[in-house]
Amino acid sequence: MSQANAVRMSSAQLAPQPGPWQVLCSRDDLVANSGVVAWFDGAQVALFYLPETEQGEQVFAIENRDPKSGANVIGRGIVGRIKDEYVIAAPLYKQHFSLEDGRCLEDSEQYLRVWSARLNGDLVEIAA
């Protein structure tokens, strides 16, 4: 197990938080059609904000750690749409992950954790 995982697990145990929606940051922190990263209870969450999707505006929350490189860089990839699915291309090796379920399009052994996220007025919220 990599060290990043070790940290994440132990702090998750330290801070079990009930309640479905938690405030992560504000709308102002997001960058349209691109990503930023937030700290969430010891985890790094990449947030992608798409102002105009078919369902209106949407925020996706996905794990920031790229399993292939081990670096925390997913939030700095390019957002796109491939075969009717919103995806993120990891910046170092360009593999794609579905923003909806976190699976890697090229390699079934890689996947990223995803969280439910929403915009609530000026707040960005995430469900643990």
Partner: peptide, 11 residues
């Protein structure tokens, strides 16, 4: 066609 592009066409 379609929506928002992808990491091929955008750059």
């Amino acid at each position: 066609r379609g929506h928002i592009g992808c990491d091929i066409c955008k750059p």
